[in-house]
Design a protein around this nucleic acid. Structure first.
Length: 877
DNA sequence: GGTACGACGTA
DNA sequence: CGTACGTCGTACCG
């Protein structure tokens, strides 16, 4: 019956269908790992995609209610009054669903004072008049009145949202016994409990339809009420006003003023980048391909316009470089492409010109003085480029702006990985990229000169949008840190292959022995590294009590195994723990060993934009998680040695920097006094909390307040504290009460800081680094409370990270300025490892101590512990 | 070959 | 029901 020549307009009631999906799909199977519920979103999108695939609409829109208040509630205050409050778990999904629709380029329509169905009614009326086949998808029975030869209703059946029943005039008449336009008359007589609209008692669909067919219209029924006999006739006469009111209220409004006409709802290409972003955030894995298939979207992000204005770069020879540079004005964008870690091509750009050249001895000679100078340069991900230049014997000075770091500072949760991401985000353009799968690419990728030009333009957009204090963090902290990190990565740290490999085989033999014992204990061989197989052994074969639930079964982690040991001891458990420990250490050793380079050193890579708090992270290999707690782990640290030509290693770490920051930020007099007194922090706090002299603080008391103090920084609860200390929750609660009785300003600060973040939408470190927290106002409790703990921690962890970066850059600068050969090698959040050249110990020690101790002016002193030794183990403490 | 998950190392 | 990270092996996808 559909006229294929006509365009198809699909209009959907977003609220009612998402709500049905919310109840149809089990919420526990549809949550992201950080607790956002997604069942309503998923169910709705799944249905919509099926619909698009089946109906191939040419025009589309989704309507939402703005609130529960409308002209209907004004006319009849009890309208829908019996409906229970929409669950917060559902409400929180609506904005995300709308975000998904925006990414899919589907218009979302809302209007004040009416309901979504009125919007559908308006569009259906306009659409039919303008010659569309209209498909109305709604879960509200009032929509039946919209059905005509041109308007079909798709109504979710009881089986669920994915099964939609089609209503055209014939099927409506078959199902309800009246034509669509008369259905509201039936509904008015019968009433609608879900809308709290009482009808005529004892009158159901059958009677209503009979009357309407008998009298011809609702008015005729009401006028002829006297002729109807029996109890129902009496009921009708008593409820004439109710019926009239029902009919007024269930008449859908067909002339809601809307910002878009049906023609403007034409289907547009979806924003694949945005779809990828939001779907991955919601952890939808299968929807993307289904969407692309249904909409015929090619998985290709060529939606954004390519800026055609990138200047054609001048190809410079060594002789032209100086002239080009002297003619250039303002900041200069620089791009050094690399091959095998060495410079390959160099691109330069100003606001309106670009140039490029290949790296050669001649070019290097003419370029290096300018590169090394303070002339301001703007780059994208400068560190690898700086390293490449250093390897080639050149230098890069005046790095004033790195767009990758600026992008991260603006939004640390979405570290854009490429310049192309930033071009899209800040310029709304597409960076020309060659398709690597094409042998002869259709379009050329941007050349180094053009990349520099784009970098410069991104930087301009970022400068305009970065808050002043964040700009200061970029300029004063991040840019010089970048230079220090490049030098640390280039230096690497000497690691003894001999020490590692002998230890590795030792551990391998030990692990094998333990494994044999473990197999004997259960009477068969299993893969001890497979949590899945372990679950079979522990819970099915050995019949041990079930532990904490995980996504895929029951936990076999160390905590769970130790707990099992206590309730139901079995020799297998301890052997498994020992095996885990041995194999884990062996893995770490192996990964370190293969990372040792020809220079006998390990060169990690620090990710400057890898955390949300401002910390660094370290990869390939990660040198920030080298074991330290056990005897065996000390042997690993002993393999990190002072390198040839150097005298010793120096380690320096901040003691209790986070608690000191807490004292500074909270201005708690007790905590400040604790640090000024020079007494051991936990002993001092323990004395106050337990009301004894510091000398009388037992190790047990010290452990408790120490856990409490550290827990504070992470947003620990009484529950968590009791679990960690293995004490009753009531005791943990008591401990917290005592603690806050003595250090109340700490609690006040933490509360106020989260509240401020809720209002501002972000937290700030002492130096102005920001971290956004949109979820602090989420109606989803899990999400909101997770955000609260993270927001409580962010200024503290972030300020500590800032302070360490400031210390690092100052130490790096002074070692260079005083012409020392000693150099910083590693940063492990609150610790630095320095390689000290012969005869430089005193100078290096002084520079490190002062650099760290004076990195920030807090109300409490920054205490720095220094150690010395031929390897990291002996230098550490 | 890629991705998710559990587990576990560090501050 | 404690923050911030990276890496490993297994299991599973296609």
């Amino acid at each position: 019956m559909t006229d294929s020549a006509k365009p198809t307009l699909l209009i959907v009631d977003g609220h009612s269908l998402a709500y049905r999906a919310f109840y149809a799909l089990p919420i526990e199977n549809f949550s992201t790992k950080d607790g956002q519920h997604t069942n309503g979103i998923y169910g709705f999108l799944s249905m919509l995609i099926n619909l698009i695939k089946a109906e191939k609409p040419t025009h589309m829109a989704v309507a939402f209610d703005t609130s529960r208040v409308s002209f209907r509630t004004r006319e009849y205050a009890e309208y829908k009054a019996t409906r229970s409050e929409t669950p917060a778990e559902f409400r929180g999904q609506i904005p995300l669903l709308q975000e998904c629709l925006a990414a899919m380029s589907i218009p979302v329509l809302t209007a004040e004072d009416v309901e979504a169905d009125d919007i559908l009614a308006t569009l259906a009326t306009q659409g039919a008049a303008e010659g569309y086949n209209v498909l109305v998808c709604s879960g509200d029975r009032d929509s039946i009145q919209l059905v005509t030869d041109d308007v079909t209703l798709l109504y979710p059946s009881v089986q669920g949202v994915s099964q939609l029943k089609r209503y055209d005039p014939t099927t409506v008449r078959e199902r309800y016994g009246v034509p669509p336009e008369q259905y509201p008359d039936v509904a008015a007589l019968v009433g609608e409990t879900s809308d709290n609209l009482p009808g005529v008692p004892k009158v159901g669909e059958k009677t209503a339809v009979k009357w309407l067919n008998q009298f011809g219209s609702l008015d005729a029924v009401l006028d002829g009420a006297d002729q109807i006999k029996g109890v129902v006739g009496g009921n009708l006469r008593e409820h004439l006003d109710d019926v009239r009111r029902n009919r007024r209220l269930n008449r859908l409004v067909r002339d809601v003023p809307l910002p878009l006409t049906p023609a403007e709802l034409v289907v547009k290409p979806i924003d694949t980048q945005a779809v990828r972003d939001i779907f991955s955030r919601l952890e939808f894995r299968t929807l993307t391909s289904r969407l692309y298939e249904a909409t015929g979207t090619v998985e290709d992000e060529a939606d954004l316009p390519v800026a055609a204005t990138a200047p054609e770069p001048a190809q410079l020879s060594a002789g032209d470089v100086a002239a080009w540079l002297s003619a250039a004005e303002g900041d200069i964008g620089v791009t050094v492409t690399t091959e095998g870690g060495l410079p390959h091509r160099v691109g330069l750009a100003t606001a309106d010109a670009a140039a490029e050249t290949s790296w050669s001895p001649e070019v290097a000679a003419s370029l290096t003085p300018w590169l090394a100078s303070d002339a301001p340069k703007v780059l994208s991900d400068a560190k690898p480029q700086l390293k490449a230049l250093r390897r080639a014997g050149a230098d890069l000075g005046g790095i004033t702006f790195d767009v990758m770091i600026a992008g991260w500072l603006a939004r640390p949760s979405f570290p854009d990985k490429t310049l192309g991401n930033l071009v899209e985000r800040y310029l709304d353009e597409k960076l020309p990229e060659a398709d690597p799968s094409q042998l002869v690419p259709e379009h050329e990728g941007a050349t180094p000169g053009q990349l520099s030009w784009y970098t410069l333009r991104v930087a301009a957009a970022q400068r305009a949008s970065l808050p002043p204090r964040v700009t200061d963090v970029l300029t004063d902290i991040e840019m010089p840190t970048l230079v220090a990190l490049a030098d640390m990565e280039l230096a690497g740290v000497a690691v003894s292959h001999d020490k590692l490999s002998s230890f590795s085989s030792e551990l391998g033999a030990r692990a094998d022995g333990i494994a044999q014992g473990a197999y004997a204990a259960i009477g068969r061989e299993v893969n001890l590294g497979s949590p899945k197989q372990l679950q079979e052994v522990l819970f099915d074969e050995l019949g041990l009590p079930k532990t904490r639930k995980t996504k895929t079964g029951y936990s076999t982690d160390a905590g769970a195994l130790v707990a099992l040991q206590e309730t139901s001891p079995h020799p297998f458990l301890d052997l498994l723990l020992q095996h885990r420990e041995a194999t884990k250490l062996r893995q770490i050793i192996e990964s370190l060993d293969v990372a040792i380079g020809a220079d006998h050193r390990v060169h990690t890579t620090y990710l400057q934009t890898g955390s949300q708090t401002g910390r660094l992270s370290s990869t390939d290999p990660n040198l920030q998680n080298i074991p330290i707690r056990t005897d065996e782990s000390h042997r690993i640290r002993a393999a990190f040695e002072v390198g040839e030509g150097y005298e010793t290693l120096l380690t320096a770490d901040y003691s209790q920097i986070e608690m000191r920051i807490m004292a500074h930020l909270s201005e708690d007099p007790g905590l400040i006094e604790a640090f000024r007194s020079g007494e051991d922090l936990h002993r001092y706090v323990g004395a106050r909390v337990f009301g004894v002299e510091p000398a009388e603080v037992t190790p047990f008391m010290r452990t408790k307040v120490k856990a409490m103090s550290y827990g504070l920084v992470y947003g620990l609860s009484a529950f968590g504290l009791s679990k960690q200390l293995r004490i009753e929750q009531s005791e943990a609660k008591q401990l917290m009460t005592e603690y806050f009785a003595r250090f109340g300003a700490v609690r006040d600060y933490l509360r106020a800081s989260v509240e401020k973040a809720r209002i501002d939408g972000y937290t700030e470190t002492i130096f102005g680094r920001r971290r956004p927290f949109p979820d602090l106002s989420s109606p989803n409790r899990v999400l909101r409370e997770n955000a609260e703990r993270a927001a409580l921690n962010a200024p503290i962890q972030g300020s500590a990270a800032d302070i360490m970066k400031i210390a690092l850059l100052r130490i790096h600068r002074r070692l260079r300025d005083e012409h020392l050969s000693s150099r910083v090698l590693l940063q492990i959040h609150d610790e630095l490892v320095v390689e000290v050249a012969p005869g430089e110990w005193d100078a290096a020690e002084r520079i490190v101590r002062e650099g760290m101790g004076d990195a920030a002016e807090l109300t409490v002193p920054l205490d720095v512990q220094i150690g010395r030794g031929p390897n990291w183990d002996e230098a550490g403490h």
